[in-house]
Design a protein around this nucleic acid. Sequence first.
DNA 1: GAGTGGTCTAGACCACTGT
DNA 2: CAGTGGTCTAGACCACTCC
Lengths: 262, 262
Amino acid sequence: MAKRYERIAEQLRQRIRAGELEAGQRLPAETALAQEYKSSLPTMRDALALLLSEGLIDKKHGIGNFVRKPRQLARRDNRRHQWEKNRARVSEAERLTTGATEHDTGLTVSDLVFEATYREVPADEDLAEQFDVPVGTTLLKRTYRTSGRGEDTPFNLARSYLVHETIAGNPDLLDAGKEPWPGGTQNQLYTVGIELDHIVERITARPPTVEEIEELGLQGGISVMALRKTCIDTSGRVVEVADVTLPGDRTELVFTTPLERW
Amino acid sequence: MAKRYERIAEQLRQRIRAGELEAGQRLPAETALAQEYKSSLPTMRDALALLLSEGLIDKKHGIGNFVRKPRQLARRDNRRHQWEKNRARVSEAERLTTGATEHDTGLTVSDLVFEATYREVPADEDLAEQFDVPVGTTLLKRTYRTSGRGEDTPFNLARSYLVHETIAGNPDLLDAGKEPWPGGTQNQLYTVGIELDHIVERITARPPTVEEIEELGLQGGISVMALRKTCIDTSGRVVEVADVTLPGDRTELVFTTPLERW
DNA sequence: GAGTGGTCTAGACCACTGT
DNA sequence: CAGTGGTCTAGACCACTCC
């Protein structure tokens, strides 16, 4: 009853979990596997595509298929926001030792590579509504990419938007050279007198775009989590909107909700 | 440079977005489409698989492919937890009017169908660690399924675990006939003197299992969000662990994080 | 150049649906 | 029964990697 490629995939899964095929090891060639399991090549490739979507193997064009090493999960905890807020007013020397991404992964700051680009863009309809400003208002768009130094693929891609006018009081904020790490965005906002009151995060899962497949090094049917973070200041104004794309197979989001006592 | 099936998919996407192919309408047969786009059938099927994974079409075996109607998003907001806690002590009459799922979707209680099964199970290693009890401890396992009355597919699947001993004080809680809706789990716990202090939710995205594909009516490469909710009471004890599976294409999770003032 | 996976084709046969 | 999508095969040719 089960389909042929599912049965083959199940047998391969067992060989992997039994340790017969070890992590990092190369699988036999697809043609050889097809012969071994008495199937056609496309059917064997369907089976391998299943394992790929489950994150059990890596496919490398021109080289082979490999048993995947157990991955390191990047954890993103909403307590990071309070932590970042607390840090916003401490000394620069203290801040330099650790940044927000390290807080998530437990890595030290020296393990991280960080890239950022700054651009001024007009607000589209979506962002104009979020910020409650007219369409076309000048925004500062910052694009981030965070990754482990040893790793080839980033943990996340982020696009952050701020209304240009609200932060123009501090010229440093418009300079990509003075990137906000490890000070953090809340520290930047502090320099222009903005205090955050609460943060709303919306999360959906969807298949990655072609750019995200390339930039995050995704393979097969693995999907991404799209997180939109909206920061609201103490006057109720939206001051930052950020879209973060997280690889679904390497990320765990953690949210703690405190409850009022009876 | 772009692959053939990607170019075909892009053309079909445009025809759908332009409204040439309307929502609910049947697409031409795959063989006809293959001829129209001068491709082989498998290539056309690859293109359609892409649209399927993006949620743009539905495939129905033996009938045809259909342009998908814009889906209703189920929203799950972490403010629901405080809302549920507040409700735990109000009168039954008041509680009967609305339940937690209605709070998410904006539907009224009469639009919902709800199914539950109760079972006693021994704690496996994972759950024993979560609850900090010995492996094999008796747990009450409740399985839920929530959906719209008109819809054929559920919004979510949930498996909730409670330590049997901690709730044995109220026999009603062990009876599937007195299901916890619309009272809610926090109301149940209130009857045995438990007050929740905070809730931790962990979220990952992954491809669905075969059971989840069937039960949630998922198609193609659509993945699910797996949410593990852990409820901690005022003494710091874990009193409930729930695993919720949410269809990635129909769900939006919303988390609000309040920040302490300076 | 030899070996690998990636894309695409042409077509057989099966399973499901509605008449 | 006719028409639909689902699975599987056999094989050509291309793109990438390493020697």
